[in-house]
C-alpha cells in the first residue's frame, strides 16, 4: 500500500529527512517514534503527497507521489498534529465540507458523519461551533475528518495526544477496525503504550534518519536487550527505544522527552 524508498527532504540547506525506506502493506501499521524534529512530520507530509521529496520515491496504492500528488492525497487521510479546525463552523458542517471535497455522495457522507460522531460520543455536540470544543473533542473531529473518505492509508501525527485514556482506547480501537478493513496506518507518536498497542512495525527516527525499522522481535535483537535487568522480563518498547537511540548518540534530553511522553 505504501512504499517509500530512499526518501529525503531538505528545507533549503537543512536536511529534514534522509534515506528513509519503509514499506507498509494493506492492513498493516507502522509506528514512527522519535523526538521532536526527528523528521516524522516531514515524512508524513511527503507520504501524503503534500510535500515534494527532494530525493527518493513515495508510492501509495501504486501511484507515484511525484507524478500524481493529487491522486495520492485522494487515497490518503492525513491527521496533522494540530487539528486545524474552522472555529466558526459546526462539527457536522465541517465534516460535510471535507466530505464534499473528497467527492463523497451527500447521502453517504451524512450517514457516515452521523455514525462517526456517534462512535466518538460527539452526536450531542455535532451542531455546536468547533470553537467551543475541548482539545480532546477537536482531536476526535480531526480523526473523523482524516478517515471520513475511507482512505487506503491513514497518516496520523500523535492522534491521541489530547485524549483521555478511555477516548484514546476508543480511537485505537477505531484505527484497528480500519486496519482490519485493509487500511494501512502510519502513526507518529511519543506514547510507547500507543505504539505497542497498534504496531506491526516500528520505525525509530532521529535527526531525519530512520535508525531502525522492524517489529518488536527485530528491534529487540537490534537493541541488544534480551531481558529487562530488574524484573527479568522481556524489554518493553521504551527500553528498546532508549537503547537504540542511545547507541546512535541520542542525547539525554531526547530520552527524557520520550520517557515523559
Amino acid at each position: 500500500m505504501l512504499e517509500v524508498r530512499n526518501l529525503a527532504k531538505r528545507y533549503g540547506d537543512v536536511p529534514a529527512l534522509q534515506e528513509l525506506t519503509v514499506r507498509v502493506e494493506a492492513g498493516q501499521c507502522l509506528i514512527l517514534l522519535g523526538r521532536n524534529g526527528a523528521g516524522k512530520t516531514t515524512a508524513l507530509r511527503c507520504m501524503a503527497g503534500v510535500l515534494v521529496p527532494s530525493a527518493g520515491e513515495v508510492r501509495v496504492d501504486g501511484i507515484d507521489a511525484s507524478d500524481d500528488p493529487a491522486g495520492v492525497r485522494a487515497r490518503v487521510g492525513l491527521m496533522p498534529e494540530v487539528p486545524g479546525l474552522y472555529e466558526r463552523m459546526s462539527a457536522r458542517a465541517y465534516l460535510d465540507y471535507f466530505g464534499a471535497i473528497y467527492d463523497i455522495e451527500p447521502s453517504v457522507r451524512r450517514r457516515r458523519i452521523g455514525e462517526l460522531l456517534e462512535l466518538f460520543e460527539l452526536s450531542g455536540a455535532g451542531d455546536r461551533w468547533l470553537g467551543t470544543f475541548s482539545k480532546g473533542m477537536r482531536q476526535k473531529v480531526a480523526l473523523i475528518r482524516a478517515t471520513l473518505h475511507r482512505p487506503k492509508l491513514v497518516l496520523a501525527d500523535e492522534p491521541t495526544s489530547a485524549l483521555d485514556p478511555d477516548s484514546a482506547r476508543r480511537a485505537w480501537s477505531y484505527l484497528q477496525d480500519l486496519q482490519k478493513d485493509g487500511c494501512a496506518l502510519v502513526i507518529c507518536t511519543h506514547s510507547m503504550e500507543e505504539a505497542e498497542h497498534l504496531a506491526g512495525d516500528i520505525g525509530i527516527m532521529s535527526a531525519g534518519r530512520a535508525l531502525a525499522v522492524g517489529n518488536m522481535v527485530e528491534l529487540r535483537r537490534e537493541s541488544g536487550l534480551k531481558v529487562r535487568q530488574e524484573v527479568r522480563e522481556l524489554p518493553t518498547l521504551q527500553d528498546i527505544y532508549l537503547a537504540i537511540v542511545g547507541n546512535h548518540g541520542g542525547d539525554r534530553r531526547e530520552l527524557a522527552e520520550t520517557r515523559t511522553a
Binding site: R45, A48, V50, A70, G71, R73, A74, V76, L78, P80, V82, P83, G84, L85, Y86, E87, F98, I101, Y102, A142, R145
Partner: peptide
Amino acid sequence: RTTLEVLLSTPL
C-alpha cells in the same frame, strides 16, 4: 491557525 495545512492535505 493551521487550517490551511488541512486544506492543503486534501486532493484540492
